[in-house]
Amino acid sequence: MEKIIVSSSPHIKDNVRTSGIMRDVLIALIPALIASVFYFGIRAAYITALCMIFCVGTEFLWQKIVGRPVTICDGTAAVTGMLLAFNLPVSAPWWICLIGSVVAIVIAKQFFGGVGHNFMNPALVGRAFLLASWPVIMTKWTKPFSTGFIIPADVVTSATPLAILKNPEAGALPGFLDMFLGKLGGCIGEVSTAALLLGGIYLVIRKVISVRIPITYILTVAVLTFVFPSTGLSAFDSMMYNILSGGLFLGAIFMATDYVTSPITSRGQIIFALGCGILTFVIRRFGAYPEGVSYSILLMNVVTPLIDRWTKPRPFGNTKTKKGGVQ
């Protein structure tokens, strides 16, 4: 009876912690990593490990230097590292990983106050920076089953299906089953739709994410590419190529659902995902660039505070906007 604690209620709390949520996200990304190692060789795992180490290390060093509490244990830097790696081609050199990590952690996250205060997804900012600075390195897509750990100088490259859609001379389109399983050129983490879906289902079951953003996002892209198919393709083929490639599943399940940079209310999340879908379609169809997922999400990240403001829930008992129901 010596040490009685007097605190304000509630006196019990749920067991869910930020670090646990981040651990779940990392677990959910593992199937896609395994698929990537299967198709691109062990180097995919090496790049991923490199990015995670660089991200966590950068966060640690930065926080030490500026004298802020070190928060690497919350797991957010590790998730950023993994997602950044998933957005890189397997042939990326180590210094690309380092620069991407520093941009993601220092510029996109820590400059704005650290976890919870960044207004854009750090991994996507890192990727956008690298893509703008080293476009050749960032779009060198290795053909599945052509490499091991070391990328040979004469690596067999393979254009992504979306690039082929833009420029039919670039190669032959892969089959839908291959695309679903991941046998196509692309970033480390984006190729296997099946593996990403598996991770997504895990996150939904663990209640880390809701299905609102992924489903709305993917459906919007599906409907738009079905109704307005690419020239020379049937509506169905156009839809399938568009949803099974270009990192749509990676973006919709793992990046657009980032808590910090997506709206907080359910209605807001649907508007956000609709916006992502429409922008992705517009960029892919009318832009010079074949992909579009990362820029769409980044653009919608920026309007998230506005969406949050528009979609404030109606407070319980605010009968000015809606009459209380009568029995």
Binding site: I21, V115, Y259, S262
Partner: peptide, 9 residues
Amino acid sequence: ELNCIRCGR
């Protein structure tokens, strides 16, 4: 206490 991650719970 950690920073809010805006999870919306």
